[in-house]
């Protein structure tokens, strides 16, 4: 346990000074000179992209969840098998 703390301490003491950074100001939000996808947003097309990405994410998450369920089913079966063999 002592060594664990010592090592964690070593990890955490290493960070050195961070780089100096530029501040983002309110003026940056209002800066109309920088072109953004404004018309794209105004036309509401952004919702299409959001819907597509959300669907992809949902699909992948459901798939991961199904895999998760499958693994837990296998784990349960394994428990049964263990009991059977030990008895």
């Amino acid at each position: 346990m002592k060594t664990t703390w010592l090592m964690l301490f070593l990890f955490l003491t290493t960070p050195l000074l961070a780089q100096e950074k530029q501040q983002v100001t309110a003026a940056d939000y209002a800066n109309r000179e920088v072109s953004m996808a404004d018309s794209f947003r105004a036309e509401g097309k952004i919702y299409v992209v959001v819907a597509i990405l959300a669907t992809v994410l949902a699909g992948l998450l459901v798939f991961t969840l199904v895999t998760d369920r499958k693994v837990s089913k296998l784990e349960q079966e394994m428990e049964h098998l263990k009991k059977k063999i030990i008895n």
């Binding site: 939000y29 800066n31 952004i46 998450l61």
Partner: peptide
């Protein structure tokens, strides 16, 4: 959180930086 990231990340206002 991931749904929030996708929706918020694409739709919320961001600073206009060159």
């Amino acid at each position: 959180l991931l749904f929030y990231t996708i929706i918020g990340g694409l739709m919320m206002e961001v600073p206009r930086l060159p």
